[in-house]
Amino acid sequence: MSTRVPLLQGTLDLLILKILIFGEQHGQGIARAIQAESGEVLLVDHGSLYPALQRLEDRGWVQAKWGVSENNRKARFYTLTAAGRQQLHHEASEWEKMTAAIGRVLAAQAKEN
């Protein structure tokens, strides 16, 4: 468990959108998927997931409807909207730019040392 790191501020939305590109999913499934896809490194606070989902829904990036899970539990399923898809591309490229930039900065420091 010590290898796990908490999510960076603001990255949860991006990860949710990314997970939903594979198809509809409920909240618990999204949390599980983020953890699984990150090789169990990223720790999703389940509590903060739902306000985030609500935020995405309010902005029209995801849609939700009640359905039944694979093990016959009632659950609220989220799907990506067209706007959400666009937002994902946008946020993903922003993220890549940022990580690349941070990487360059860190590399520069390494040279100096």
Partner: peptide, 19 residues
């Protein structure tokens, strides 16, 4: 969305996680 609906979702999450 009503707060009851939101509560239902939280309950569903905990059930799913427990499962």
């Amino acid at each position: 969305r009503s707060s009851e609906d939101f509560d239902d979702e939280i309950r569903a999450h905990i059930e799913l996680e427990t499962d």
